[in-house]
Amino acid sequence: MRNFLAALATAALSGCTLTTEWRGDPGFLLEGTRSANAAEPSTDPTAAWEVGRTTLREVLRDVGPPDEILRRGRELWLVYRYRYRKARELRLVAYGGQFFRWYDGKDVDSMVVVALDPEDRLLYVGRGRYAGDRGVLGVLLDR
């Protein structure tokens, strides 16, 4: 019986691939990560942001250094990016050909762009299409 169960478990896992990948710092997606006092309840650091008022230093204080800094005309873009992939895959292959494949994966590619004017004041915030639902900057985007 024990041998049978071992063989069954092996057969069930055969051809299985488990993958976990992530790249980037997800800090900009998390609420309250930049809270100066850990005892304070989590607050959305971008809730106080205002177009035309919030400065570059306030943005950096709230969401940290960006992954990229780009000049787009007169605008300065701070680009934050985080990619995450977790997948389970089952493939059955015989005679060099694949005749069954099952894939269950979660892919998150979150990107946030904070645009500033020449005076280093907030112009707008853009979020990538596949940004996570918990993106703190969504507060601004939904306005």
């Binding site: 055969s14 051809g15 299985c16 691939t17 488990l18 993958t19 990948e21 992530w22 790249r23």
Partner: peptide, 13 residues
């Protein structure tokens, strides 16, 4: 070739 279990982990910080 099916009798294969693969676990892959990749993190870039």
């Amino acid at each position: 070739g099916n009798i294969r279990i693969r676990w892959h982990y990749n993190i870039i910080k």
